[in-house]
Design a protein around this nucleic acid. Sequence first.
RNA 1: GCCCGCGUAGCUCAGGGGAUAGAGCAACCGCCUCCUAAGCGGUAGGUCGCAGGUUCGAAUCCUGCCGCGGGCGCCA
Length: 587
Amino acid sequence: MSLISHLSALVGATFADLGLDPSLGAVVPSNRPELAQFQCNGAMAAAKAVGRPPREIAEDVARALDMATDLKSVDVAGPGFINLTLTDEALAAWAQSMADADRLGVDPVEEPLTVVVDYAGPNVAKAMHVGHLRATIIGDSLARLFDFVGHKVIRDPHFGDWGLQMGLVIAELERRHPDWPYFDPDFTGPYPEESPVTLDDLQEIYPVASARAKEDAEFAEAARRATVELQRKRPGYLALWQHMRAVSMEDQRANFSDLGVDFDIWHGESDVADMLEPLVERLRESGVAEESEGALIVRVDEPGDKKEIPPLILVNRAGGYLYSTTDVATIWYRSEQLGADLALYVVDARQADHFTQVFRAARRASVAGNMQMEHIAFGTMNGPDGKPFKTREGGVVSLRDLIEMVEKAAMARLDEAQIATDYPPEERQRIAHQVGIAALKFGDLHANRTSDYVFDLDRFSSFEGKTGPYLQYAAVRIRSLLRKAQERDLAEGAVLPPQVEAERNLVLELLQFPEAVWRAVDTRCPHHLAEYAYGLAGVFNRFYDACHVLSEPDADRQASWLTLCRLTLDTLVRSLYLLGIEVPERM
RNA sequence: GCCCGCGUAGCUCAGGGGAUAGAGCAACCGCCUCCUAAGCGGUAGGUCGCAGGUUCGAAUCCUGCCGCGGGCGCCA
C-alpha cells in the first residue's frame, strides 16, 4: 500500500468513527508545504451533511489522529484543513520499504483485464508524418502503463490498408501504367516478385490521386470501383496491394523502431477482411442494417442526443466497405477472438463522431460482447503559427525528418559542450538518438492529452528546463555517482530519518510514485506521470546540490543516501520507461 | 446553423471544488579548486477571455456572450 492510501485509510477510519463517510478522509499532498506535508479537506465537505461547523469536525478528527505514532503533527488550520506531517522516522521506514519492494510501491490490479490499445494508425498509402506522432507516443505510454499495473495488454497499430486510399493509388497506377500485368484481367500470373512501386512512388502518388479524385468525378468513381474490386480480392489488385503494403510497412516498422515503439500484433483493417461479409449479412438479417440511398447503413441516433448523429455507413453505393465497416468488424474480432475486456482507441479528437457511430453500431450489432470501448482523444499538433505543423514549403513533415532533426540537435549539443568526446562514435550516436527521442516524446507527453499543442522545433534543441533530456540527465548523474561509489567500495545501507529539507523532500516525492501511476492510468493521461517525473528529477537535483554524497563523512548517512539515490534512479528510470523514454548510461 | 474542445505570466503549458494560482522558455542577478553547469539559487512578470449564477469556498461546476480551433452520410 502506498503512503497516501495508508494515510487516507487512517484519516478515513477516524471519519467513520464519527459516523461520517470514510471517503472524506482522502489525503493529498499539502499545497502549503511550509505548514505540513499532507492535508485532508474532508471536514469542510462533511460540515453541510452533519450540520456542524467544519472546524469542529476537523478538531475531532485531529484529536483522534493524535494517537497515530507515525504522525509528527496534526493541525487544524483555516476553515477546517487537517494538516498532517509525518515523523522523519516514519518517512525513513516508508522509503526503506519502497527500496526493498520490487514494484516501487505499486500494487498490481486484483483483476487483470485484457486490454487492446489501438494506436499509431499508420496509413499504408502514405509515410508516417508528425500527425502520427502523438497517437504513437501517447498510445505507447498508455500500453506500458496498463501493462505495469498488471493488465494484459495487446498493442495493435491498426494499419489503414483496406479502404479507399488503396483504391485511389491503384486507380492512379492503372491510369499511368495500363500495360502492367496487375491490370490485365486475363493475366494468369505469376506476378513479379519485385514491387513495381517504391516508397517514394507511394508518397508521390497518394497526394496526387487524392487531389485528382476531388476534381475529377470520373476518376473518383474509378477509385471506388478499384476499392471494391480489391476488397473482392481481384488477383491483380491484390498482388499490387501486397507489394505496396509490404513496402509501406517496412518503412513504418523502421519508424516505430526509431521511436522505440513495438506492437504485439501488427494488424490492419485487412486482417478482418474475411469478417466483413459475415458481419454485413448478420446485420442485414437481424434488421439492424437497412438500405438508404443505395447504401447499407446502421442508424445509431438515440433519443437523448444533443446533436444529430448520422447513420454509420456499412456498405457504400459502389458496394465497397469503409473504415466504419472494418472498425465494427475489428470490435467483433477483438471481443470474440482476442477476448478483450477493454479497447482503447488512441486517435485524434476530430474522429469523436466516428467512434460514437462505431461503438453504437457495434452495440446494436451485439458484436462487442462485454468489451468496453473508449476513444482516447487527443488534440492537434500545431506549428508555432497555431496552424497544423507544416514545413516552410507547406508540406507535412515526415516522421523520419523530424527524428533526424532532433538527433542532429542533440549531437550538436554534445559537440558544443564537448561532452563524451572520448566515447566511441557509436555510443555518441546512440546518446544523441536517445536524447533526441526523449526531447520529442517528453515534449509531447508533458502536455495535456486533450488540448491542441504547439510543436516548436527550437524548443527541442536547447535541452534545458522542462525537457526529456533534463530527466535523463538527472538519472545519468545518479548512475555516474553510483559508479563512483562502487569504485570506492561504498555500499548502500539502511535509510536513516532525513535531517535536511532537500533529503526529506526527496523521500516525500519518491513515496508519491504510485499515485502518479494510478492517476495516469485512471485518466488515461500519461502527462500526469510526466509531471511527476519532472518533479522527482527537480527534487533530486536539489538534493544533489545540497547533499554531497561521496564526500559525506558520516558513513551511515552516506550509505543511507546511496540507497536513496538508487531508489531515485529506479523510480526515475521506471517513470521514463513508462513514458517510452530510455536513459543512457552516460551523457 | 448545430455539436465538441480550448482561452491561465511576453511565449509554451501545468493546475485533483479548497489556504498565498504554479513550472519551463525568454529577461535580469548570482553559484563550477566540489559526486556531470543538459544543473542549482534569486529578481521581475497575472482583472485565470467577459458577465452572471451555485457554494462556507470557483481558474476548477452551471448559464449566457466574445474569440480561436475542429466536426457535422457514402474519406481515413
